[in-house]
Amino acid sequence: MKGILLFEAKSCVTGDQAVYRRPAYRTTIQPNRDMKFTVNHINLCGMSSPLPTVSPLLVVMLLLLFGTGTMTAESSSDEDRYTQQRESMVQQQIANRGIEDQLTLDAMRSVPRHLFVPESQQRRAYNDNPLPIGHGQTISQPYIVAMMTELIEPRSDMRVLEIGTGSGYQAAVLAEFTDEVYTIEIIGDLAQFGENNLRDAGYDFVNVKHADGYHGWEEHAPFDAIVVTAAADHIPPPLVEQLKDGGRMIIPVGSPFQTQNLMLVEKDGEDIQTRNLLPVRFVPFTREDD
């Protein structure tokens, strides 16, 4: 059996300023005829070391501990990595693009997006783009989710309806600042996928329904905000009805892999206004004369 144990030196610089903390050497473990493992030290700093002989049992125990420790270290390092990516996502993709609402930023910072995508996509969960989640659906680009959240002007006492649960990510973000989140998904498998994701990520208080979102969720209407994440070529009249006076509805317009516009629908009594928003900073589509 051959294995490598590598101990990293914090520093290995000779001279007055050297801070020598741990030796840096590469260790190979080789079997011998007596099934004793001989550990050879090769000191990369040019310092020689003796050749100790170690008990096999101790080595096995060390290996087991090392292995377990490695796995644990790997899991916690994965979590650390995701946390770092999430923080980076919030800073670079969201805050830097003008999202200022603190509730939104905190929510985006808290929700583990990687738990809402298929395993094959997890390493790209915090990239600046949508990701496919099956059934021709996507989990939206983080910026879009943040912008949609900010646009509904989140408050802790809001009652929010989401049409199109999908991965459950948007619902999880909404659930970070309010307990009253209702989400509907028309595709059965996706409804289950989203519900499972929400439960596994600790958002089991989110109300998930497998139904046709066209009719909204009348029993819990009216809603302070309605977030429509599933593209439809019309805005269902029942949703407009179930929006509170002064409420806001957000709908993305555009193919999932294209730059999407967000459309804000505001209800003020009988008057309903729409506003077509641009998700990226608007730049006129002209170029300088040559």
Binding site: I186, D212, Y214, D233, H234, P237, V265, T274
Partner: peptide, 18 residues
């Protein structure tokens, strides 16, 4: 499909069932 409605860019003033 029972949920397949035709209402392309329907006015928000529409109150019927597409």
């Amino acid at each position: 499909a029972p949920a397949q409605r035709f209402a392309p860019a329907l006015s928000l003033q529409y109150r019927g069932e597409p």
